[in-house]
Design a binder for these strands. Structure first.
Length: 896
RNA sequence: GGGGGCAUAGCUCAGUUGGGAGAGCAUCGCACUGGCAGUGCGAAGGUCAAGGGUUCGAGUCCCUUUGCCUCCA
């Protein structure tokens, strides 16, 4: 036996991979958690996901056996167990799936024998505790899996072989596609050997029985299901197996729960250490488990390029992080702690998953930022809960549902926390009721997950397999003779096409760059061909749908083309040169951002077009003008240094060694292209670049904005585009300078500030003068008495509401006790204002009612408070009547 | 991507059918005090995020934009 018995979970993982590597399996690295080319899936949730297209035959690999330790995540989407995690021994968000795969190579015999050998020989699990199951032929069109049954019989006594129906033991990828029966291996965890079936397959305890635990699932893909359910035998059946590392480790290490294994217990203990406790924490134990589990998920997700944000996968991550932090507060971890647990994950798993080490700083930063943000949210929510409690009537028995729901939905305050506080105040809160109210508020919008990537047409897979990758010669050439290998019209392959047709073309080689890595596809023309007159095509786009296939989108403007033709491909050079400038500038911008803002800056997306470049990157706040200027200076300094750019093919490992920047979670081939600019900027990149940095001419940022929380977007121009922008902007400044009679552009700002200051002063002065005019010369003569109440009525020249109020104030104070009525004209409209001294307001006289009565004369409406009210209307001519009517209306009010 | 919300003095925020822009803290001044802490009185500080609309009148209502918080897929 070559592989020796492992002592802990990490050694178990290695032992598994070694075991299958020794048996001819390619050791394939775990794919990132974000599925590649699968828009239907939020996260990789099984070991076989990265081989999906291989099983269906759409994709090919140069090996037929593979083994992986695949990180998987179950957290988002329709059915997730998030709420259970931490409270049961085996629910996890992140887990590792060990698997061995056969792509049309070995089948049931080897799969069964190896699984048995690994469990009993390598891990030393007692054979008499293991029971297995096969498909019994019920519930689907496939028959009883006699083959598997017979094979098991060679290893296991008859009464430890169970047979179950399709629900348990038949697997399918989707409604159609590869499928087949499966066999499961379970372990009996009670005392002694596993009890038998009583000799009858299909009879006996169901495996839901807590005494049994599933260890390994072997899927035998031997059928293909077609539309309508018709089942066909596959010529070369495949094997897909999966064994949960956490479970195997629990048995190996004799732990009653997965949290007691060497995978998770160091994380649980770290949490306890930070909380200043040790040993079993009873009810609080679950919180430490949640923290441990979620720390793993958090560290891996961030390493795979997911950041905690408010949409999609990002939101799932944030929810996981917040749940962990919340459980931290439950056990007294009131200071940021989670980043320390996540850092321990990096240490513990960094050997098996080097991507964790690479992302160490990014993980720490993202977690700390999220911890701070969530604690702010908690503080804010706490205040609101207190406010709600304070507003509650004395004898309320329950915390009201609506505020609790709003607190959660709108302000992100955990429902369970609201309940805890309510209970502290002797109130109850039904969490289910609140959750129901939240769903109501949500409007039950269930649109389903919409992924980013579009589904790839089968025809491209077919062509990629048949023709292989298109040779790209466009780094050096912009014109190239090539043989036409395929023509696609409306998604179907054709042999020829004539003028007027919209076609997609594939050649054996091309100088056209297929859109990828943010750089958009080339335009150009294609000429020549077998047609005596010569064909001509305009290429409007070049795409790279899959497998290195470069597809030219073109319209035939002249002549006729056919598969096999030799044609001349000519890229639009001016456009390509502009793209080169923008692509190289993008790299330099990336470099400058990391220098000026910090290493937390990571590319989140980019667009390289001929007229502009766009760069999205992680950064927590808007860029200041100074930061933007510093970045521009640095990029332009690199341009002026005019260093030659270099490209080099090397292995991915060497590239990383050289410090090349790549994208988190991006899938790279083993051989990568590395682009170096001025020795500073080293990036993995397949794009086209300038020969020397100086070719860029000028780099200018033209806009800055946000796309999501923590993600900023810069847009910039280069070369002639930059010149256009500068000239346009400069001409605007010059015109403005001339307009304001400023000496120069600097003076322009001074002039503007001065003008604004002056304007403010003038407005104040004007208001003062107006008020003086309005209040000036108030003699006793104007004042009359109506039923013992002093009344001052006056028409004034200013109708600005504020000035009228000030004027009324002054006049009212002068009266001591009484009523002031002001009338004025403004913008061709009539204005009225009534002010009443406080001794009368609301008691004898109501300003609002009085002004309302007078407003009728000007066809207007109005209102206000008892002591002050305003009205306005369009009928200027009625102003005098209103003035005359004032004593009458006042008398009427006083008479009541 | 959809829903819910926020943006008011340097800071934290109030502003309830649309009717005079506020509080606390911080700042400055004066007073009490041997000095400090403290207390009292007073002052300064606002394009109510930006732009448009409705209205006699908008911090308040409507639309757009920007920034931020939050829930959900």
């Amino acid at each position: 036996m070559a592989v020796s018995r492992p002592t802990d979970a990490h050694a178990l993982r290695t032992a598994f991979l070694d075991f299958f590597a020794e048996r001819g399996h390619e050791r394939v690295a775990s794919s990132p958690l974000v599925p590649f080319n699968d828009p239907t899936l939020l996260f990789v949730n099984a070991g076989m996901v990265q081989f999906k297209d291989v099983f269906t035959g759409r994709d090919k690999r140069d090996y037929r056996r593979a083994t992986t330790a695949q990180r998987c995540l179950r957290a988002g989407g329709k059915h997730n167990d998030l709420d259970n995690v931490g409270f049961t021994p085996r629910h996890h968000t992140l887990f590792e799936m060990l698997g061995n795969f056969s792509f049309g190579d070995y089948f049931k015999r080897d799969a069964i024998n190896w699984a048995w050998e690994f469990l009993t020989q390598v891990l030393g699990f007692p054979a008499d505790k293991l029971v297995v199951s096969v498909f019994n032929g019920e519930g689907d069109d496939a028959p009883f899996d006699q083959e598997a049954y017979d094979l098991w019989l060679e290893l296991v006594p008859k009464d430890r072989i169970y047979a179950f129906n399709a629900k348990e033991n038949f697997w399918q990828m989707g409604d159609t596609g590869p499928c087949g029966p499966c066999s499961e291996i379970h372990i009996f965890r009670g005392e002694g050997p596993a009890p038998g079936t009583g000799g009858q397959p299909g009879k006996g305890p169901a495996f839901e029985d807590a005494a049994y635990m599933e260890l390994w699932n072997l899927v035998f893909m031997q059928y293909e299901k077609h539309e309508g359910g018709r089942m066909e035998k596959l010529p070369a059946p495949s094997v897909d197996t999966g064994a949960g590392l956490e479970r195997l480790a629990a048995i190996l290490e004799g732990a009653s729960s997965n949290y007691g294994t060497s995978l998770l217990s160091p994380l649980v203990d770290k949490g306890k250490q930070l909380a200043g406790v040790s040993g079993d924490q009873g009810e609080r134990e679950a919180s430490f488990r949640v923290i441990a589990d979620h720390a793993r998920a958090t560290a891996f997700l961030i390493a795979d390029g997911v950041t905690p944000e408010k949409s999609g996968r990002s939101y799932v991550l944030r929810r996981i992080m917040r749940r962990a932090i919340r459980h931290g507060t439950l056990v007294g971890l009131d200071e940021p702690f989670f980043h320390e647990i996540c850092d321990l994950v990096v240490e513990q798993f960094g050997d098996a998953y080097p991507e964790l080490r690479e992302a160490r700083a990014a993980i720490a930063d993202a977690v700390q930022i999220e911890e701070q943000a969530f604690r702010r949210t908690l503080d804010r929510g706490l205040k609101m809960v207190e406010a709600t409690l304070a507003a509650l009537p004395e004898r309320a028995g329950a915390f009201p549902v609506d505020p609790a729901a709003k607190l959660y939905d709108t302000f992100g305050f955990p429902i369970d926390l609201t309940r805890v506080i309510a209970v502290e105040h002797g109130l109850t809160l039904d969490e289910d009721e609140v959750a129901a109210r939240v769903r109501e508020l949500q409007g039950a919008g269930d649109a389903g997950f919409v992924g980013g990537d579009a589904k790839i047409n089968d025809v491209y897979f077919e062509l990629a397999n048949e023709l292989g990758a298109t040779e790209f010669v466009g780094y050096a050439e912009v014109e190239q003779q090539a043989t036409l290998r395929a023509i696609i019209v409306d998604g179907a392959r054709v042999e020829s096409a004539s003028a007027g047709a919209s076609v997609e073309l594939i050649f054996d080689r091309t100088c056209f760059y297929g859109e990828s890595g943010g750089q958009i596809g080339d335009h150009g023309v294609i000429v020549g061909g077998a047609d005596p007159k010569g064909a001509r095509l305009e290429v409007s786009d070049s795409q790279k749908p899959t497998g290195g296939l470069i597809v030219h989108h073109a319209s035939v403007t002249q002549g006729r083309i056919a598969v096999g033709d030799s044609l001349t491909l000519r890229v639009d050079v001016a456009r390509r040169d502009a793209i080169r400038r923008n692509h190289s500038a993008t790299h330099m911008l990336h470099h400058a951002l990391r220098e000026q803002l910090g290493k937390h800056v990571a590319q989140k997306g980019s667009l390289v077009a001929p007229d502009r470049l766009r760069f999205d990157f992680s950064h927590p706040r808007p860029l200041t003008l100074e930061e933007r200027a510093a970045i521009e200076r640095q990029v332009n300094a690199m341009v002026m240094a005019n260093a030659a750019t270099g490209t080099q093919e090397m292995s991915l490992a060497n590239a990383k060694q050289a410090g090349a920047i790549g994208l988190f979670g991006e899938k790279y081939a083993d051989e990568v292209r590395v682009v170096t600019i001025a020795a500073d900027s080293v990036e993995l990149c397949g794009g086209t670049h300038v020969a020397r940095a100086g070719d860029i001419g000028l780099f200018k940022i033209v806009s800055e904005g946000g796309v999501a929380q923590g993600v900023r977007r810069l847009e910039a121009v280069t070369g002639t585009g930059a010149l256009d922008w500068v000239q346009h902007t400069a001409s605007i400044v010059e015109q403005a300078t001339a307009e304001l009679h400023a000496r120069d552009a600097d003076d322009l700002l001074v002039r503007l500030a001065k003008l604004q200051e002056e304007l403010k002063l003038k407005e104040r002065e004007l208001a003062q003068i107006e008020r003086k005019l309005a209040t000036g010369g108030a003699g006793e003569s104007e004042t009359t008495e109506v039923a013992g109440v002093k009344l001052l009525v006056r028409k004034i020249g200013v109708a600005d509401p504020k000035v009228m109020r000030d004027a009324a104030d002054t006049l009212r104070d002068r009266l001591g006790s009484g009523v002031v009525v002001l009338a004025a004209e403004r913008d061709g409209k009539a204005s009225l204002l009534v002010a009443v001294t406080s001794d009368l307001a609301g008691k004898k006289v109501h300003a609002g009612k009085l002004v309302g009565a007078l407003a009728g004369h000007i066809d207007g409406r109005g209102g206000g408070r008892p002591d002050l009210a305003q009205a306005g209307g369009p009928k200027l001519a009625g102003l005098d009547q209103a003035v005359a009517d004032a004593p009458v209306q006042l008398a009427a009010q006083l008479a009541k």
